[in-house]
Computed example of a mutant assay.
Amino acid sequence: MSRRGWVLFALMSVIWGIPYLMIKVAVEEVSAPVLVFARTAVGAAILMPLAVRAGGLGVLRRHWKPLVLFAVIEMMVPWLLLTDAERHLSSSMAGLLVAAVPIIAVVVGKIAGDRERLGPLRWIGLLVGFAGVALLAAPHLTGGGFWPIVELFIVALGYATAPLLAARKLANVPSMPMTAACLSLAALVYAPAAILTWPAAMPSGQALAAIGGLAVICTVLAFLVFFELIREVGPARATVFTYVNPAVAVVAGVVFLGEPLTPAIVAAFALILGGSVLATSRGSATARGTARRKDTPMTADRQPT
């Protein structure tokens, strides 16, 4: 990986490790639709004027179908479900379950036509990773804890699929206009539900700070960095920063919210992390060469932001 790739990777490791903490703080005082609307509307308000000034909105008309689909599976559905799930689960639990993204990405890639063979180590990685997810989720699969687990699985599925779509259908679309358009669309969709569930009283300063952090740091900055990471290293490797995200999520939850750090959480994290590393490994020189050849066009087609 290039030096630029490592810098982007490090930024994403932290930036998308802290949303779980911010969502947990904000959702105590506002509804899930209000939080998603505020996050997307503020992000759109920041990026849209910059996108208009840069003059990159015209290219979006030729890609509107995959653009809408990307907005749905990367933002609209996952952010609502993640926010709703954190009404019932801890922020660290949510971060750890979403950490299965690289494992799910391998499965999605095979279904979507990835020709790379899954060797024994990668199959073991899939099984170990899913064992970690099962260890973490099993105690919550009874009573009212079942639906939040399902919500987080759908979130992980969306996060695993969206980079593949972006790489195949949106590789030549500039990052800033693309992000601005997706956020604007999401804000319009959630505006009616947000109005209907608007809080009766002004949220606390802590909640407002969490919402602002979600919009500016975890949305605007995150997606600009994320699209560049996809173009720099490819869609499969672009999700590998999720190895670090759960550790950031757990530490943030324990330090700032006093969430428990149990042996089961530590064991599940080790299984998910180890399984992800094995499941996304490139076992042979031929496989690595193929991966590099597949990644080259995206690097060459990088657009200015």
Rank of each mutant, 00 (worst) to 15 (best):
A26F: 12
A26I: 02
V27G: 07
V27K: 04
E28N: 15
E29C: 05
E29F: 02
E29G: 10
E29A: 03
E29Y: 07
V30W: 09
S31D: 11
A32R: 04
A32F: 04
A32T: 04
A32K: 12
P33I: 06
V34E: 10
V34N: 03
L35P: 01
L35Y: 11
L35D: 03
F37G: 01
F37Q: 04
A38R: 00
A38W: 13
A38K: 00
R39G: 11
R39P: 04
R39D: 04
T40M: 15
T40W: 11
A41R: 02
V42T: 09
A44P: 12
A45Y: 01
A45V: 05
A45E: 00
A45D: 04
I46E: 07
I46H: 07
I46P: 10
L47S: 09
M48F: 15
M48D: 01
P49L: 03
P49E: 03
L50F: 10
L50H: 05
A51D: 10
A51S: 02
V52W: 11
V52K: 02
R53K: 13
R53L: 07
A54V: 04
A54E: 12
G55W: 02
G55L: 01
G55K: 11
G56R: 10
L57D: 07
L57V: 05
L57I: 13
L57Y: 09
G58P: 07
G58H: 09
G58E: 04
V59Y: 01
V59L: 13
V59S: 03
L60S: 06
L60W: 00
L60N: 09
R61G: 04
R62N: 09
H63Q: 10
H63V: 14
H63S: 03
W64C: 03
K65L: 15
L67D: 00
V68L: 14
V68T: 10
V68K: 01
L69E: 09
L69S: 05
L69G: 15
L69I: 13
F70Y: 14
F70M: 13
F70P: 00
F70N: 08
F70E: 12
V72I: 15
I73D: 10
I73W: 05
I73V: 14
I73Q: 00
I73N: 10
E74P: 12
E74Q: 14
M75L: 15
M75D: 13
M75T: 08
M76K: 00
M76T: 14
V77E: 01
W79Y: 15
W79H: 02
L80T: 00
L80Q: 02
L82F: 05
T83Y: 03
D84V: 14
E86W: 08
E86H: 01
E86P: 10
R87E: 08
H88D: 14
H88A: 15
L89H: 12
S90W: 11
S90M: 14
S91A: 13
M93C: 03
M93K: 08
A94T: 09
A94I: 05
G95P: 10
V98L: 02
V98A: 10
V101L: 11
